[in-house]
Design a protein around this nucleic acid. Structure first.
Lengths: 237, 237
DNA sequence: TAAAATATATAACAAATGTTATATATTTGT
DNA sequence: ACAAATATATAACATTTGTTATATATTTTA
């Protein structure tokens, strides 16, 4: 017996959606959150937090992007998420009262809003809607990771690349009216889709020849979404 | 700069540890939990719950094992966990007040203890230690999924097989004094490590020839742990 | 701005994995 | 216990991916 699940928004399956965490709060609640936020600048290459560190608070990115990764037991870095504008991160360890399970590094100079541990825990107590939403989001993120596992285990390299290009374009250019392209190092992109840099290069070349992407410097521009969806064997939207 | 994290128990990195959820409660609390449990028998092949279903409660497996999986967008099943005796499952969707994100199927006839939704939510309110432990466990599970992602993305098939054999032996024979071997269909094992049944067969044959496993019917017996660890390039314990 | 360091592109070859096909073994249902 | 259905084993070949090597481009630093 096969249960077919009504397909929700395709991108939502792979998106933490933590940018919506402080949305839909009442105005006073939203104010209370903003009152405890402290704006910080984080330099490219520095860590917001790292595996086994003790959590001091949570972050909302206001400008720039950051990679979340974990090291496999042989030490190689595995990126499993790219955070960008408005995304909130760092709450798992806080809520679970344990150390960070992963690391987060700024991929460019960031502007972030920081909420200190005690302030955030107090907000959770004072705003039940926020606590509820946070727990709901963690459950959602669990499903996202399971979906990523399915992709990595089942799809070949070209499919994975097509998927992540579509996801990254959707996520990174969420708030930008102009097309900016996908701007990650080849190394980071390879670590995200689970392959080597050289092998990724081969796939990118194939995609260029097919005409579905264009490359300028390190930037990757999507030229033909439909063709990428075909590589994925999925109809989106 | 490289941060090296003190390596906790190797198996814990890949184990949800939800079998410990009701441990370390006070005697009255443990009694309260047991009072609302209802013992059920679930036939091999039937579903404890499935993706998009509405949660009715949680389960603790008392005998047998079950697979948790999700379908990728092309419909193929991806197993991401095998549950066994004492494991508790089904609480993500309940806590997040949303539908199940994944499916769970009995791999053999199961004896389970069921706790109805309202009873469980009431217990969480009445026993803060339980709620805290549950949230902590969900944060831990998040890390486990991230570790599985790293393995699937970075390790070749033989390494993945070696790892999952060690994990399964450790998890499935937790409470059994006699060696029982690993008893999964080739299909399920292939879906767990992310390969095809035929290709899995080739790896199993290699492992047999190396002498690190023996096979009887579908059962896989580990003969040489050290050799499997070498295939993994990891020193365990 | 020039030199050095880092990042990217590409090709050739090796190794791993996917796929198709066929034979045999085991389990299930009557 | 038997037939049918399902699961497993194995081989040959195709395709994909990993690896090594080298050249070029871009960015960083002095």
């Amino acid at each position: 017996m096969l249960y077919i699940c009504y397909m929700k928004d395709f991108f939502a399956q792979f998106d933490f959606q933590s940018n919506l965490l402080f949305e839909n709060l009442s105005e006073p609640d939203k104010q209370a959150v903003e009152n405890v936020m402290e704006s910080l600048v984080v330099k490219k290459g520095s860590m917001l937090f790292f595996e086994c560190g003790i959590p001091t608070g949570i972050y909302q990115i206001k400008k720039g992007k950051a990679k979340k990764f974990k090291r496999g037991f042989s030490g190689e870095e595995q990126i499993f998420y790219i955070y960008t504008t408005d995304d909130v991160l760092g709450y798992h360890a806080l809520l679970g009262q344990e150390r960070y399970q992963d690391s987060c590094e700024a991929l460019e100079d960031l502007t972030v809003n920081f909420i200190a541990r005690e302030d955030f825990l107090r907000l959770l107590n004072e705003i039940p809607a926020l606590q509820q939403k946070l727990i709901k989001n963690i459950a959602h993120e669990f499903g996202v990771l399971a979906n990523i596992i399915a992709v990595l285990a089942q799809k070949n390299q070209n499919s994975r690349l097509a998927l992540f290009l579509l996801l990254l374009e959707n996520r990174l250019n969420r708030n930008s009216p102009t097309l900016k392209g996908i701007d990650l190092t080849r190394d980071d992109l390879a670590n995200l889709i689970g392959t080597s840099q050289e092998s990724l290069g081969r796939s990118l070349k194939q995609f260029k020849e097919l005409g579905c992407i264009e490359i300028d410097k390190r930037n990757i521009y999507i030229k033909d979404k439909k063709q990428l969806e075909q590589l994925l064997q999925v109809k989106i939207d």
